[in-house]
Write a protein that binds this DNA or RNA. Structure first.
Lengths: 178, 178
DNA sequence: CCGACTCTGAACACTCATGTTCGCGACGGT
DNA sequence: ACCGTCGCGAACATGAGTGTTCAGAGTCGG
């Protein structure tokens, strides 16, 4: 059931990102199981949504957890770990309903703090310019998000994504003014 | 009705961004009108959604339309014009259902081309580094989006937004490596 | 071979958003 | 004062998604 549940939640995330109003029947069909069976795993629609959200948080935590320190504070490793879980992050970030669920927002804040820690490590290494922490975080995540999106619709090779994110994040897209 | 319709569509955009599954009753209540009256303006839910989308496109077109050329190709003016219409852009960008509506996607592509033209003007002025056009565009828009979001929840002063977007876009957030 | 388990489609009742109609009251022009 | 227009709430019918139950079919292990 662990593997089953894993792919089920991931498929659900993809379907629900594509169409947030998708019915449970669509999710079940996409997962190749019966609607009744889906209901047996997750009694209500909210149960499923929360499960997918927690699955996303779990992956996010896993990505942020074991980021080793380094010359860049672990920035590159963080980008490498987060781009592949783009679909799940998109689902989590783009579902406003979660903003009022304490279980989720608490976990969210915790993992965000871990991400911020990486950025501040990078800052301590002198890699990052002085800027408001929330702007650093939001900018970094938005680049991850965009890169993941570009990977998904085939415009960007998965292997190129982390480099692109990192170089854009650090040096921007303007010509070097020296 | 022009003014009426204007504020109505803007309110609808905000409500629907906050909760994409909001019922028409919620939208009507937020707009301070009766559900029946809302129905008289926009017969179906889809009609309302499309109207909001076209309203967003209209604002977007207006923002992108009259960008004068300049040393930066008009980049700063574009950022200044787009940040204020953040809510409408969020609604447009975050509603997957529009991806399959030709009327909207056509207009979307057109205005996106105008935005890309500004970026390429900037590139011609030597302001932008060589990079895939879609990455330039996506990155720029995502910064606009994030800045608009930060403005909305009070973390960022509206007047500071364009500068922050532009400096991040051009030089990134890393320390200058000289 | 048999029992336990799971998945499955069919069917059901239920809720809720939707779309429509109708009659009432307010406002503005004549 | 009269009448057309407009917005409004109440009420209704409809459809779709949801959650539940049930019995049959398949698989696996004893």
């Amino acid at each position: 059931m662990s593997v089953q549940s894993r792919t089920l939640l991931d498929i659900a995330a993809e379907v629900l990102v594509t169409d947030p109003a998708a019915s449970l029947a669509q999710v079940a069909r996409a997962a190749g199981i019966g609607r009744t069976t889906l209901h047996k795993h997750y009694a209500t629609r909210d149960d499923l949504l929360y499960a997918v959200a927690h699955r996303a948080l779990e992956l996010w935590e896993g990505a942020v957890e074991s980021i080793p320190d380094g010359p860049d504070g672990g920035l590159r490793a963080l980008a490498e770990a987060m781009v592949p879980i783009g679909p799940q992050l998109e689902f989590l970030w783009r579902t406003p309903a979660f903003d009022h669920v304490v279980e989720i927002t608490d976990r969210w804040k915790a993992v965000e703090a871990r991400g911020l820690a990486v950025l501040q490590r990078a800052q301590a290494h002198g890699v990052l310019r002085t800027a408001p922490p929330w702007w650093l975080l939001q900018t970094f995540y938005s680049l991850i998000y965009v890169a993941a999106e570009c990977v998904m619709n085939g415009k960007l090779a998965p292997a190129d994504a982390p480099d692109l994110v990192l170089s854009t994040f650090l040096t921007g897209l303007g010509t070097v003014i020296a």
